[in-house]
């Protein structure tokens, strides 16, 4: 009897462990990070849901002329943003008004888009799909195409139990994939985890000290953003005339407030700022030390001048480069799901 009880308990424990491992593989909160703000109870991740979302993310079927996918502006190798132009472009070569934000760690994001127009990750894809300068399509039309495709009905069935394709399922699966795009294995992370043999150079250490002194308030560790909005003293682009957050809130205190981006993988996410006006990190740091346009609506944190010597600027950049996460940039589980699309072509 005892023997059977032991077998029963061991089997149960193994099953429990296996379940935990399976869950952990889909999403894990890195050690020392805050709890995610995304409510996973409302959209439980599954391998099938993530795969469907991944297929949708890479499929240009969601744009009017089937040429632009989410990944067109959010390329994995460049921190899920584009680097070859300052403003995003969409179908027929139309140029938008903003630089595409880098994507990572969205389970912790607050409001989305540079102006916070989107209040939840689930509904974020609606904006680029409908934007005339991006995909110029509609959710309705997208769903019709998906229903007619050879690939998607079976992917929806695998993810949700039947082939019904709804806006809700479509958006949930995209969220599932985007939630898995977590960057937490940079040199910075490994140093913070006290991994053996990994430590900052003297230059990087000094850069971290300066970073914490001058930048940490807005680019808060470990996410390197507060997810808030700030007016960082950029003069308004006279052509774009983008007022940022004020367009959404209408508040006189919000002009030129833009979302504070994470600095993770900042080495690869150039050009910088909402309109991509800076190509290099050096230009960004120069802006904060000598380029800030003072006004009544300048964020409080930037009202005192930031003074850095030339060497300190170099140290600061050395630290910022430790936020590069190569494992993230080349993680094949985030990459183009070639096996899905190639199979479809053969069919």
């Amino acid at each position: 009897m005892r023997k059977w009880l032991l077998v029963f308990l061991l089997t149960g424990a193994a099953a429990g462990l296996s379940f935990t491992r399976k869950k952990a593989a889909l999403f894990r909160v890195p050690d020392g990070w805050p709890a995610p703000t995304y409510n996973f109870a409302n959209n439980r991740l599954t391998n099938e849901g993530i795969l469907l979302g991944r297929a949708l993310f890479y499929d240009p079927i969601l744009s009017a002329d089937s040429t632009i996918s989410c990944a067109s502006c959010h390329l994995q190798y460049t921190a899920f943003t584009h680097v070859d132009h300052n403003l995003s472009h969409g179908i027929y070569g139309r140029i938008g008004t903003r630089n595409s934000p880098a994507i990572s760690n969205l389970a912790w994001s607050g409001l989305l888009m540079w102006d916070g127009a989107v209040n939840h990750l689930d509904v974020q894809p609606l904006a680029p799909i409908a934007n005339r300068d991006e995909m110029d399509f509609s959710l309705d039309s997208s769903l019709i195409r998906l229903k007619r495709s050879a690939l998607y009905p079976s992917l929806f069935r695998n993810a949700f139990g039947d082939t019904t394709i709804t806006g809700e399922r479509f958006l949930r699966s995209l969220s599932q994939f985007m939630l898995t795009i977590v960057s937490s294995n940079s040199k910075y992370d490994r140093v913070m985890r006290h991994e053996r043999g990994i430590e900052f150079s003297q230059q990087e250490q000094n850069g971290l000290k300066l970073f914490r002194q001058h930048c940490e308030t807005c680019h808060k560790e470990p996410l390197f953003t507060t997810s808030g909005f700030a007016n960082n003293g950029l003069p308004v682009d006279t052509l774009l005339r983008d007022q940022g957050r004020m367009r959404i809130t209408g508040k006189p205190s919000d002009p030129l407030h833009f979302k504070i981006p994470s600095l993770r993988n900042v080495e690869f996410s150039y050009p910088y700022m909402h309109d991509g006006r800076f190509e290099r990190l050096q230009q960004v740091i120069d802006h904060y030390t000598s380029g800030i346009r003072h006004s009544d609506v300048l964020s409080q944190e930037l009202r005192e001048p930031i003074v850095l010597s030339a060497n300190e600027k170099v140290d600061m950049i050395a630290f910022l480069l430790t936020l590069t996460d190569k494992a993230f940039l080349y993680d094949t589980s985030f990459s183009y799901p070639r096996f899905l699309f190639i199979r479809q072509t053969k069919e």
Binding site: H120, A127, I129, N131, D140, L143, T166, I248
Partner: peptide, 14 residues
Amino acid sequence: LDPAKGMYWTWQSG
């Protein structure tokens, strides 16, 4: 309440 019903803004949430 599915956004596909055409009663959901795309340029901002709501």
